[in-house]
Amino acid sequence: MFIGATAALLVAMALTLIRAFAGPTLFDRVLAVNSFGTKTVLLIGALGFLTDRPEFLDIALLYALVNFIGTIAVLKFFRYRNLGLSSAESADREEID
């Protein structure tokens, strides 16, 4: 059962990678990488059940958290050209230049 789910997830991840490489715009890539991250969470969960190691689910939960933050960070960087400033400060800076 879990073998089927794991296989389906691996195939889905390969297809998502194709979209990540082929994606014309930057946002296709960000979308593909975000989707890839969610699938990794599911894969870790499925493997945790396959090998009867429930600790994997902590890793899956952590990965879900980090994946979300990573996506938002990439978007913020490409939107405001920097990560340091808060969005308010970078909005002000944007008006200057």
Binding site: A8, L9, V11, A12, L15, T16, I18, R19, L31, A32, S35, K39, L42
Partner: peptide, 9 residues
Amino acid sequence: VLVGTIGML
């Protein structure tokens, strides 16, 4: 998951 991924492609 597969349907969504194929959709994304």
